[in-house]
Simulated assay, not measured.
Amino acid sequence: MQTLAETVSQRIRDKVISGMLTPGSHLSEQALSDELQVSRNTLREVFRLLTKEGLLRYEANRGVFVSTPSMATIIDIYRVRRSIECPTLAQAHPLHPGVSRMRAAVEDAKLRRDAKDWLGVGSADIAFHAAIVELADSPRLSGFYAQISLELRLVFGLLRDPEFLHGPFIDQNREILAELEAGKAAEAAQMLEAYLLRAERFILGAYTRLTDR
């Protein structure tokens, strides 16, 4: 059974995943305590847990902030993603239940694109790739990837134009899924590896432009 601090921690993680909290955001103890209906002592325990995870950072005399990924972090995240997602997809069976979740994420992304909900498109993209990891049938791997997904959302949050970020990758997810459903898992994995390399270069380029301003 989860403690209150663990439950509240998950609510804050959900705010990061949804894009409601972006890198560098200052977290007000008073405002969050009122919003989440918890004591400041509980909230401080929550901050301690999430700082240990790397999701938050504490600055003396300034308070608690959502962490801001570095360029090295971005490179490492994409290295880890390629090492997990590509081999998993290459060995996947097209009738695995995870494939239906990949399909649901693709459909969700298209609906959200039509509604101009670009933060929602980002969440659907993360769900698509989490479903790929589920193809490995490893709860431990999926749990580890959930932490990577949190850091990935922080990376996405660095870029202020989510349409520019997510728009090009919606159809690429659909194409990868189509290859897998056609029984071409190895080809799908090759497409995914090229996709992740492009995504990494795209994000690093945007990040460089952002930090050079």
Rank of each mutant, 00 (worst) to 15 (best):
M1D: 11
Q2K: 13
L4M: 08
T7M: 12
V8W: 04
R13Y: 12
K15F: 08
G19K: 00
G19T: 05
M20K: 14
H26Q: 09
L27R: 02
S28C: 10
Q30Y: 11
V38T: 07
S39E: 02
S39L: 07
S39P: 08
N41K: 14
T42Q: 11
L43H: 08
R44V: 09
V46C: 00
F47K: 00
R48G: 07
E53C: 08
R57S: 14
E59G: 06
A60D: 05
R62M: 07
G63S: 02
G63E: 03
T68M: 10
S70L: 07
A72W: 04
I74A: 06
D76L: 10
D76A: 11
R79I: 13
R82E: 11
I84D: 03
I84G: 06
I84W: 06
E85F: 11
C86M: 05
C86K: 04
L89P: 00
A90D: 03
H93P: 02
S100Q: 15
A104T: 07
A105F: 07
A105E: 00
K110Q: 13
R113E: 14
D117W: 04
G122P: 01
S123Q: 14
S123G: 10
A124T: 03
D125I: 12
I126S: 07
I132L: 10
E134P: 04
L135S: 11
D137Q: 12
S138E: 12
P139D: 04
P139R: 06
R140I: 14
Y145K: 05
I148M: 11
E151M: 13
L152Q: 08
V155F: 08
L158K: 03
R160L: 11
D161M: 10
D161Y: 09
P162C: 03
E163V: 10
H166R: 03
P168M: 11
P168T: 06
R174F: 13
E181L: 09
K184L: 13
E187P: 02
Q190T: 14
M191L: 15
A194W: 04
A199C: 07
E200K: 03
E200G: 10
I203C: 04
I203G: 00
L204C: 14
A206C: 01
T208P: 00
T208W: 04
D212V: 03
D212W: 01
